[in-house]
Every structure is written in C-alpha cells, then in structure tokens.
Design a protein around this nucleic acid. Structure first.
Lengths: 189, 189
DNA sequence: CAATTAGTTGTACTATCGTACAAGTAGTAC
DNA sequence: GTACTACTTGTACGATAGTACAACTAATTG
C-alpha cells in the first residue's frame, strides 16, 4: 500500500528522475575536471538546470559528492557481480576491468579514486568506499579460501589501478591476469 | 665560483629558508585538511606570514601543490633508501612503514595519496608521483630479480596503504611482512 | 475546491578566493 | 654612494562559491 502509493505519485517519480540526472551531471564533472570541479553551479550548468534545483535535491555540496561516490561504486558493483555470475574465468574478467583503467574506463576509475579518497577523512563514507574492495574479495572467494591470498589480491588490484592511473603503466589484460593468478594461487593457473 | 656566489648572498639563503617554511606550512594544511585546504591564504596564515610572501615564492596555487608533493615524496624516498642501506630485512622495514599508515604516519600517507592523485590529471607531475613506486621497486630488486614479482609487490604496497587509509584495515607489521614475502618470493621467507 | 505537497525559478547576501600591483625595506655589487 | 636585486608589506579587484529565502507552478489528497 505504502510502497504502491510511492510509485504512483508522479511527482515523486519525476523527482527521482531529476535526482538521477543531477547525479549523472555530477559524475560527468568529476570525470572531466576531478572532484574539485564539483560545485552547485558547475553541476547545474552541466545538467542544464538552475542551482536552486541542485540545492533542492542535494542540500549541500557534500551530499552531491556522496551521491556521486555511491553511484560510481554501484557501477563497479554491478560489473563485478556480472563477472561472478558467468561461467567465464572471473579473474580474467577482473583483469580486463583493471586494464580498462588505461583506456575507456580511465575517467571512471580516476573518478572512483578521487571520490573514494574523500572517505579517508569521512568515516561515514567508509562503507561505500570499501565496497569495491569487498566486491573484489567476494569474487576472489569464489576461487580461493586462503584469506591472506584474498587480501593480497584485493590490494594488488588497487595497486595495479593506481599504477595505471598515475603512471600510464602497461595495461595488458593477459599480463594482469597472470599477476592476479600468481597472487591468488601461488602459480598462475 | 658560481655555486659559492649563491650561498654567500644572505638574501638568497633567507629566501630558501622562507621557501622551506612555506612548503612546511603547506604540508601541515594538506595533512590536516586535505589538498583542497591549500590556498594562499590558509598557507600564509599557517606560516604566520602574508599571502604576498606565499605569492612571491610560489606564483600559483599549483606551484604550492607541486612543491608539497615533491617534499612528501622526498621524505618517503629517504625513508626507503635508509631501509636499503641497512643490514636488516628491508621487507620488514617496508612492512613497518606501511603499518605506520595506520598510526603516526597516517596523515603523511594520506597527504601523499591526495597529492599524488593530482598527477593523474597532470602529466608533468608523473615523474614525482612515480618515485614512491620506483623506490619500492628498487628495494624489491635487492631481494629478487623476478620483474613480475617486483611489479606485484609494488602494487601490493600501494593497495595495502589504500586499505589502511580508506578502510581502517588491520595494520600488523608481521602480517604485512608475510604478505610482502609471499608476493615477492612465492613463500614467506 | 481548498489545502497540502513536491517541484521549480529567481534574487541576493556573505565569504573566500586567486591574483595584480605598488610601495617600501634590506642586502649586494661596483 | 648609487643602482640593482631580493625580499616584504599592504591594498584592492573581479570572480566564484555556498547558501538563504521567497514566490510561483504543478500534482495530489480528502
């Protein structure tokens, strides 16, 4: 009844769409200019609306950043879950995902890094920011129950992304897959 | 002669001292409030001087950030070099350094992360930002010539620091040492 | 239909920022 | 001693930011 009530009210639906539009505009800004580029004015302009709207839906700048981090993290969560739900080698999928940081996924990976770094100074963001690592750990657990190896694999994925983003490090999926395998299994099966 | 000329001019010496003071104040701001807290005014206030002075020595905000990144990277470089110059187990020293990210070294580690992340959008900063990874790789090379293992170890150190900073992850030096050893040698010697 | 709720628009305030610029002080060279 | 150089102080401008607030429009409820 209450749940039905909520979806029926067209205003709320429109509000949700507007909210999503604003979050998308925020992410576009982060990807293009970095987290520091996010202001109510830049987001409003990107979304083609007034700042009053961004303020109506997100009372503070912080709210915008939190929503952006949540959104980008959701994206990664879906990606990794899909890797786990397939018959293919999940480590191979993960290697490809990491390798994307050098190409089509670079902006998104950098946005994730910049936004998640905010979590270090904001304990409230920790649960969101940790989800990437939790997701990778969960994926690793489908192939190993060695907790140390799993922990190392999670750290390795983080570190490889860092190298790619900050160093233009080599991003060959096969090479990355080998490193992941070595770390999780001791050899590289 | 020219070098001698430079150190004799008392004005230049004072300038260098002033410059170092400003960089130190910048780092204090980064550690306390993050890279976004760095403005000419906040730095000037922290150093007890006027913004005209910060501007005299660092024409742009960017110059300040670059100097701060260089400084914090120098600190880490010295630390790691010292680990290599000792008879002790360098991996053990590295593990302790990483573990510091959970305690006394947390602010510095976070500052390094925030500043080095700037390098992703500024190719000119890459050489500076990569030095941490180069240093760790060099340390690893004193113990292994397996380039894949070395690359994995570097990424692992990055990832472990991330987990500590963003997640309040466990930071037991012995545990970290074991992970480092496993990654570099296949076992944990 | 009136009242309430959700969304939208617009104005304006205070605060802070990066930076330009001029004037002054102090140290050095010739 | 003069000219030059390095450093220091102070003022002020234009721009942008976060945010408060009021008024209005549209949708929903009873």
């Amino acid at each position: 009844m209450a749940a039905e009530q909520e979806t029926v009210d067209g205003r709320r639906l429109r509000g949700e769409r507007r909210r999503a539009q604003i979050i998308e505009a925020t992410l576009a800004i982060v990807r293009r200019d970095g987290a520091t580029g996010v202001t109510h004015r830049t987001v409003a302009k990107e979304a083609g609306i007034t700042t009053s709207l961004t303020l109506y839906y997100f009372a503070t700048l912080d709210d915008l950043l939190v929503a952006a981090l949540t959104s980008v993290t959701d994206t990664y969560t879906h990606r990794i879950r899909r890797l786990m739900d397939t018959d293919e080698d999940p480590l191979d999928g993960l290697a490809h995902l990491i390798a994307e940081s050098a190409g089509p996924g670079r902006e998104r990976a950098l946005a994730e890094r910049e936004l998640s770094t905010l979590a270090a100074r904001r304990p409230a963001l920790r649960p969101i920011a940790r989800r990437w690592r939790d997701n990778v750990a969960e994926l690793a657990r489908t192939r190993s129950d060695d907790e140390d190896a799993i922990e190392a694999l999670v750290a390795l994925t983080d570190g490889l992304c860092t190298a790619i983003l900050l160093d233009d490090h080599e991003a060959d999926p096969d090479h990355i897959r080998a490193l992941l395998g070595k770390t999780l299994f001791g050899d590289a099966p």
